[in-house]
Design a protein around this nucleic acid. Structure first.
Lengths: 359, 359
DNA sequence: TATTTTTGTGTGTCCGCACACGCAAAAATT
DNA sequence: AATTTTTGCGTGTGCGGACACACAAAAATA
């Protein structure tokens, strides 16, 4: 009924190696796992045959046989404070479901993103559990370093997402290239604006000092105009806004908008583009286009009624999903894991939004 | 919105069910696989317990235990004739590597996309091999139908990609929503063009009559302007070009460009945007922006030197990859498979190109 | 030299499931 | 009533690998 002309590496098993090396499977097993107790010459013979036969262990059998469980821990902000974090959470849970069969179990530790103490507390708790691997978004730099040190000492691999810290070499970083995303935003602005005008960069709710990625975005944005020799045509302004003070927020915006009637585009580097959209709506200002980040509900509202032109998707669900996968590739599947995995910069508009909402 | 109290099903095994139902594992097995030979009352008892315990078979053990092999076949154009097809091929091969452990093996059948006979010949050959599942891009409609009929008769599931044919209900279709992609292209054009002008839709190298998706793209494109009440500002032109006649190609373009000096954008519905870019380059025409499809080398060349503004990525690698996955979800993992799986409409520009090239 | 320890190797069981086989009891035939 | 056939159910083995254990022979120690 079926042909079996499989020229492919006819799945080599431990047994095959054992026969060819004239030893028992147990010995081969010891060689493979470096459990010692094997004569040097035998070991080399076996290793040679393994290479010759291009042996690849059957992962299914491996996982099934060793009833080892993998406890992973994930540390990220509570979505109660910022809906953005719902997405990584979903990604993590999807990965958990996918990998459940492989004995993977994940514990989530969430903290208040406005409170370093909460962060430290959760990180401490997490560390106590002594997980096999850690995925985290290390939004507090100096608070994080001691943990990195500790985990490194314990040989617990950790993967970063969303926020990058390069000290203490993490296993991997998953996220976006902020600089490049600034460039991209500028490209879109420029495409939509041939004539000279002012463009406003708005950083909302985050201290620039503490948020390297915002700086990178701004750099990328500005450099686009320089690189394309159109910097003289565009007057790039910038403003930092805090929502904590509602009146301050509006006053600052009023000020800058009123004194720069030539502003045609606003580039919001954080996920609060909707606040700008709301402001413009209330002041009945038209003719200013907004580009921002993240597919959170309030942003989508304004994307759908055309007050926000574009959103750049940071693929937060993918960040959680791939972060866990990286850990498992390393821990379970013993694969090489790229030190850095940049996720695509998705340009989202009303017309293609649908495809980015679910998967 | 929340899932029901998903009790961390402490991995239930067939044995557990057997004990609880006071039968042997063999009986449970028979119930699960509907192999018959089970008393009606026992069967119901077992089924009830399976549900109660929320039993989920261990896929690893399942695959390992049944040494069943799955032979899949993929039918698509040879990339020698059109580099576009390198991508689906790569996707298929990636999926094969991923699923190898599960006993999946894929045979590729490639044909000359300009020769229906070649298509039929390969499809015939494929059918002879009697695969367990088929993935294909059925670019010839009427030649395809008899095969669909035959496969349906033999209960061989088949998945379509890139080109959709709804007769004989395939297991699934993977590809893009052409209409929506037309809308999206128009949105981009509109964003980059506030003042009235002419816009040209160019269909290259495909007979409209034979390519439903091009019609859909055009419809979407035109409808955008209608829906947004800006149709009076834009004069939408269209042209069909064939590269087979080099002189005819240029003459036709010359004609339309010269008689419509107001053209500011050209929307190329096929992957030959680079031909337009080359034409404009040679004629030293600037000020016309191009938006097209597909990340093939010649397009990327003109994307990188800014002669093409945007490319919409059809995600051809993903099409191959997910196509195979759909087949396996159905055949091996017994999952529900969506009848239609639209891949994201990725907007690609020089600045984010990188992230779409590899994965 | 006698005894203990270390080294090198093989055997056997289990992981969760699929599937073949065996064998009573019940049902259908003769 | 004697037989064959069908039905219902249990047992056993294998998939490929992990790991515990057993047990010689060799080496170290007393």
């Amino acid at each position: 009924m079926k042909k079996n002309s499989s020229v492919k590496s006819a799945n080599v098993r431990i047994k095959d190696i054992a026969v060819k090396a004239k030893v028992s499977t147990g010995t081969v097993d010891r060689v493979i796992h470096n459990r010692g107790r094997v004569a040097e010459d035998v070991k080399e013979r076996v290793l040679k045959i393994i290479k010759e036969l291009n042996y690849e262990p059957n992962l299914l059998a491996r996982v099934l046989g060793s009833k080892k469980k993998y406890y992973l821990a994930a540390l990220f902000p509570d979505h109660q404070y910022d809906a953005f974090w719902l997405a990584p959470k979903a990604g993590i849970e999807k990965a958990e479901a996918d990998l459940k069969q492989y004995g993977v179990q994940i514990e989530q530790f969430v903290f208040n993103p406005h409170d370093p103490d909460s962060y430290v507390k959760q990180a401490t708790e997490l560390t106590k559990r002594n997980p096999d691997g850690i995925l985290l978004s290390p939004i507090y730099y100096k608070e994080t370093l001691p943990f990195f040190e500790q985990w490194k000492g314990n040989h617990i691999p950790f993967v970063l997402f969303n926020t990058q810290i390069t000290d203490y070499d993490p296993l991997s970083y998953i996220g976006q290239d902020s600089y490049q995303s600034g460039l991209l935003a500028a490209k879109i602005v420029h495409f939509g604006q041939q004539t000279p005008c002012s463009v406003l960069i708005a950083h909302i709710d985050e201290q620039i000092s503490n948020a390297q990625h915002l700086v990178k975005k701004e750099q990328g944005f500005r450099n686009y105009f320089l690189q394309n020799n159109v910097d003289h045509q565009f007057n790039i302004l910038r403003v930092e806004l805090q929502r904590s003070s509602q009146s301050g927020f509006i006053r600052k915006l009023d000020e800058i908008i009123d004194s720069n009637p030539n502003i045609k585009h606003i580039y919001v580097t954080t996920s609060q583009a909707f606040e700008i959209a709301k402001y413009l709506e209330q002041r009945k200002i038209t003719g200013i286009k907004i580009i921002g980040y993240d597919l959170i509900a309030p942003n989508l509202h304004y994307l759908n009624n055309d007050r926000i032109s574009f959103l750049i998707n940071q693929n937060p669900k993918g960040q959680g999903y791939w972060g866990i996968h990286q850990l498992c590739d390393y821990l379970i599947f013993k694969k090489e894991v790229p030190i850095i995995k940049y996720l695509p910069l998705d340009i989202v508009t009303k017309e293609n939004l649908n495809y980015f909402l679910d998967e």
